[in-house]
Amino acid sequence: MYIISYDARTHEKITESNVVIKRAADGNVVFKSTYTVNVGLTAYKLASHESIINQAEIVKETYQNEIENIKILFEDFGKTLVNDPRLDHTLQIIQSVFYHNSIINTAYRSIIEETDCGCTPHPAYILDKKGFWCQEDYMINPEQLLTAIKDFNYKIQDREIKAFEYLKSHRKESSISLDKISNLIEPREQFMNRINSAYYSNSNNYIKQNSIKIECTSQGSDLGCCGNYSGCCIYWSLVCLEHDLYCLKCDHWYCGPQCKPL
Rank of each mutant, 00 (worst) to 15 (best):
I4T: 12
Y6I: 04
T10W: 00
K13C: 02
K13E: 08
I14G: 03
E16Q: 13
S17A: 11
V20R: 15
V20F: 13
K22Y: 02
N28G: 09
V29E: 13
T34C: 03
T36D: 08
L46S: 03
I53A: 11
I58P: 07
V59W: 04
K60V: 02
E66T: 13
E66D: 15
I70K: 03
I70P: 03
F74N: 04
K79T: 14
N83W: 00
Q95C: 04
S96M: 08
H100F: 06
I112K: 13
E113Q: 15
E114L: 09
C117N: 12
C117A: 14
C119I: 14
T120I: 13
K129M: 06
D137I: 05
Y138V: 06
M139I: 04
N141D: 14
P142F: 14
L146K: 11
N153L: 08
K155V: 13
K155Q: 10
R159H: 15
E160M: 07
A163L: 06
Y166R: 06
L178Y: 12
P187K: 03
S197N: 14
Y199G: 01
Y199N: 01
Y200F: 12
N204F: 04
N205S: 04
Y206R: 03
I214K: 14
Q219M: 07
N228R: 11
N228Q: 10
C233I: 05
Y235T: 10
S237F: 03
C240H: 02
C240T: 01
E242C: 00
C247A: 07
K249A: 09
C250N: 08
H252A: 11
K260Y: 06
P261N: 04
